[in-house]
Amino acid sequence: MNIFRLVGDLSHLLAIIILLLKIWKTRSCAGISGKSQILFAIVYTSRYLDLPNFVSMYNTLMKIVFIAASYATVYLIYMKFKATYDHNHDTFRVEFLVLPSFVLALLINHDFTVLEVLWTFSIYMESVAILPQLFMVSKTGEAESITSHYLFALGSYRALYILNWIYRYTTEDHYDLIAIVAGIVQTVLYCDFFYLYITKVLKGKKLQLPA
């Protein structure tokens, strides 16, 4: 464990908590892409199938929290507060993300076993899972500031993981090319948002995307 990965995981946890609190407190999932949340639930389910393999208390605890929180979020969006779910703007064709991720995982992986292919699929899936949400923000042209804080924390987590991978390569001579390439793609997808967040939201303005 290193500081980059620890802060990254905490940023990830913060994002998930911000989202859950936003939906629960406002009793509304307006502006939130249910499709992205379903993709995240798929990511954690397919990645943490190795949950029974005990690595550490921290590792097991975080995996359980991420799985539970992602399903709770999907439940809140599609069941409890489904009246506030914005179908009209959450229209990204997720099949164009799931299928290519799965095919790519079958073609490019470290080991052609069920667990390894599913882990690889979860890595590819996670790198594009935020697209429906970013697409929805661009369609609505704006996002509530709490939603942009969620996106900033979520985007920062994988950016910090890139620093973690650099650190691990330089100190442990260890690297995982699949995770690194997908992590860079994932972080790049947030760049446009990061720019808007830093230039606008941090100045107290609303996040307005050029329509």
Partner: peptide
Amino acid sequence: SFAVKSKDEL
């Protein structure tokens, strides 16, 4: 060492 998958990462 080539991609020995980092099992300890989330």
